[in-house]
Write a protein that binds this DNA or RNA. Structure first.
Lengths: 222, 222
DNA sequence: TCGGAGAAATTGATATATCAAGTTTCAGAT
DNA sequence: ATCTGAAACTTGATATATCAATTTCTCCGA
């Protein structure tokens, strides 16, 4: 079992429910590698370590299990199942879902959404000069959000969100490369053009390739 | 809140854990429409109705929430969020993930997998004559399973499995149409050929179109 | 009649106790 | 020395009790 410092007790700061808080803590610990694949978790031990009872922890672990990050064997224990291979598959899942969202967006996009996308592209180009990586990350997210909104696919969006496993550090690292920043803007512009032209097939393909190419860069940083 | 007959008490047949059993019961009730969108669930009431305590029920509800079928509002209640729109999006999610799996399969497929696929196609063609719908359903599943195995993508497969919402009745109904049976075999053969030819782009596109076309037929039966 | 303050009821959130399946340990026979 | 099996221990599964936020109801005053 992992060292007792892999997870620290929860502070009495109840921003949200304990179970949600704990869910985030354990999920982050798994994705950051502080809890490694194959490691065994003990519900009671973990609960007391976190300073909570087992009830909210059980609920959090059940969610993590349904997401495929851990596997629960009845009366045996909970094992971390996340590994590098799964990280790559989660990236592929994100590519599949994000490209389906782009396809739907290309079918339903409104002119005002197109205007928003184009405005963001302009901002991104400007950001290439200033090299404010934090701002580029934010612009990146806003760009994808505009497409999500335009698609009207709330379920796909939610499912896609669950496949995000990149840390802030990885994002910073990737976008610190000048070539990556340039490529990202080029690809975003191509995607925006395909959606604006109402070409679902093209938008889907460009988005898939963008997520996979960019994703492979991120996976290297882990 | 739903009528007291929407869900019946669990039998003392513990094939699996109570939480898994209850999870299946509630999920089926939602997908079958016995628990309708917008309906409010009461944890205590539902637990006593099922003859169990709230602990396993809470865990089951948390999983359903992470799947997006219900939404839990702290200290307010649990509301069914599933509706026709989400059903369509789940079909699209299945198309996106299944087509990504087909893409990976086309990259990694082994000759023995190809042989398996071709054998199943032959069986399907034969099945067209005998019109044994149950057997066709089974062949259908085996065909998709071969592709899943060939892809080596266990996570994508699992995620895709969570998007299956068609009832057995809907499957029966759809495959009872002669034209649908014919189309399905044709599409399966085209997919098999694309994978055998190691053409990821083609396999992905064909699989996506197949799942969407067939899915829209299923959604009409609900 | 209307409206708001506050008490009562409701209900999910959390904690704790109990149950039962699985694992480990170790005495005792071969 | 090795194998067997029963007892002790672990641990997740389940049940129950308690807590606290929210809603609903009630009643008094304008």
């Amino acid at each position: 079992m992992g060292g007792d410092d892999a997870l620290l007790p929860v502070e009495p700061v109840f921003l949200k429910s304990l179970r949600d808080h704990v869910y985030g803590l354990v999920r982050d610990a798994i994705l950051a590698g502080r809890l490694k694949g194959g490691e065994k978790l003990n519900e009671r031990h973990l609960a007391s370590q976190l300073g909570i009872s087992t009830t909210p922890l059980k609920e959090a672990l059940r969610v993590l299990e349904s997401e495929g990050l851990v596997r629960s064997e009845p009366r045996r224990g909970i094992y971390i199942t996340f590994n590098a291979g799964q990280a790559e598959e989660m990236m592929l899942a994100r590519a599949a879902l994000e490209s389906m969202i782009a396809r739907q967006a290309a079918k339903r996009v409104k002119d005002e959404d197109v205007a928003l996308m184009r405005a963001l592209i302009v901002e991104m180009r400007a950001g290439l000069e200033t090299v404010d990586v934090l701002q580029l990350i934010a612009l990146n997210e806003r760009f994808h959000n505009v497409i999500h909104e335009a698609s009207g696919c709330s379920y796909l969006r939610r499912l896609q969100g669950g496949q995000n496993i990149y840390t802030h550090a990885a994002r910073l690292s990737v976008l610190s490369e000048e070539r990556e920043r340039f490529l990202a803007v080029e690809e975003h512009e191509a995607i925006a053009n395909a959606i604006a032209a109402r070409e679902p097939d093209l938008a889907e393909r460009l988005m898939r390739d963008h997520v996979i190419r960019s994703g492979e860069k991120h996976l290297l940083r882990v």
